[in-house]
Design a protein around this nucleic acid. Structure first.
Length: 273
DNA sequence: CCCGGAACCTGAAGGC
DNA sequence: TGCCTTCAGGTTCCGG
């Protein structure tokens, strides 16, 4: 599933190909994926210069001249491909650039969305902090989690608390920080906050270096697969031995979401350090 | 604010 | 073999 490392990998791949080009056409093969005031906005972005490609959380932002932007969210099964896939029946939209580059928005389940926005700041304002920027400190993380009695696993998945972390990397970060997923977010000790902060950043950076995790349908724009899943300790590892202690990895449901963890290394009430 | 549940969506996997 | 149910997971919305 595309989380922050996967979206960042896609951003890095397409940025040099489309930045500085003009958007010739936004071909909508399945108009239902488009969000926002469609007809007016669509006509106002055609022909615009793409000034850059950025990312906010799991959202890919194609920034256009004049304050416009195309905001792409891949959700579960979305992909941006440089070549038309075969079969092509799941291509929902195609972006045509002035240098001939085409970006195929492929999405099996049609949960992914494309939004055309004028107010980029406004559309990202509700997201929590970016975990890989310099202003994300342990104290910022502490502030984000304060006041939330919900399980820390659920808090990490809430994009309004921290942006970009999804199910896989939340499980990996909690494992690396030795924190039980059901620990109330506002009951983490200073030491746990500090370890979790470090773990979130390490897990995400490592995954970016591996160009993302291709557990299911995720692929780079080139069609290649990422290799970050080879580093996973707990995510999608139910019943496998914990790399540290050998205890089989357990999977439980936390607020209707699967949570994989080591029941020995990540015990509740581990307020050590 | 806090929480649970449903909805969106399709393909894989499991039960019978 | 085939039908049926469940699950997977990101996000939003709605009700208590």
């Amino acid at each position: 599933m595309p989380e922050l490392p996967e979206v960042e990998t896609i951003r890095r791949a397409i940025e040099p190909l489309i930045s500085g080009q003009h958007l010739i056409n936004l071909e909508l093969r399945d108009p239902s994926i488009l969000r926002g005031d469609t007809s007016t906005l669509r006509s106002s972005i055609i022909g615009k210069l793409v000034t850059g490609v950025s990312r906010r959380g799991k959202q890919l932002l194609l920034v256009l001249e004049g304050g416009w932007a195309i905001v792409i969210h891949l959700r579960m099964t979305g992909a941006l491909l440089l070549e038309e896939p075969d079969p092509s029946r799941r291509v929902r939209a195609v972006l045509h650039l002035s240098n001939g580059t085409r970006l195929y928005f492929n999405d099996i389940r049609r949960l992914g969305t494309i939004a055309l926005v004028k107010d980029l700041d406004g559309c990202c304002r509700r997201l929590g902090p970016e975990p890989l920027t310099g202003d994300f400190t342990p104290d910022i993380l502490r502030q984000c989690l304060a006041g939330h009695r919900i399980p820390v696993k659920a808090a990490l998945l809430d994009q309004h608390i921290v942006a970009g972390v999804g199910n896989m990397y939340a499980d990996e970060a909690l494992y690396e920080a030795n924190i039980h997923p059901l620990t109330p977010a506002n009951e983490l000790s200073p030491g746990q906050i500090s370890r979790l902060w470090e773990a979130i950043r390490a897990v995400l950076q490592r995954a970016i270096a591996c160009q993302g995790a291709s557990i299911a349908t995720y692929a780079l724009p080139s069609g290649e697969r990422g290799t970050a899943h080879n580093l996973f300790n707990v995510a999608h590892k139910k019943d496998a031995p914990c790399p540290r202690c050998g205890t089989p990895i357990t999977r439980v449901m936390v607020r209707k979401r699967g949570a994989s963890f080591c029941p020995s290394c990540q015990q509740p009430g581990n307020h050590l350090g």
